[in-house]
Design a protein around this nucleic acid. Sequence first.
DNA 1: GCCAACGTTGGC
DNA 2: GCCAACGTTGGC
Length: 164
Amino acid sequence: MARRYWLMKSEPSVYSFEDLEAESDRTTGWDGVRNYQARNLMRDEMAVGDGVLFYHSNAKPPGVAGVAEVASGPMPDPTQFDPADGHFDPKADPEAPRWILVRIRAVDSLPRFVSLTDLKAEPRLEGMGVLQRGSRLSVQSVAPDEWRQVLKMGAFKGPDRGPR
DNA sequence: GCCAACGTTGGC
DNA sequence: GCCAACGTTGGC
């Protein structure tokens, strides 16, 4: 299976790309997702090594802050079983976990932050999921040419320029 | 703070 | 199964 690309949203006031880079192993479990479509992508579609655009939502300004990669296969999201956690789900059954996460690892920040305004201004990104009207999905698929375009706009020089 | 868009819940 | 009510997301 060819490497695929994703966009994952986080509110930087809750968890930012800088927070991910500051983790001792630069990884974190992408917990707290409580949307079935997003869960299904993590559970069924993502693979270790896939590329991730780390998007800051509800930020000033919103936009893509960095590049990460999928660092684990799907596993149960432990926060669903923790009554003290804001994402606790009383209906979740440890025998058949309802909510799933993958781990992601920071690759590198973008030398140039690519704001939502920048994304909208680029005609080649017209079809990108995050730009579609009413798009709220916190985990989205990104096409390979969109991936390359965003990395180019971000002046990304890292080890990971994607396909080709 | 506003509000449009969307997902979920629950009564029927 | 329908759909109104409600809660959340997220840009502005």
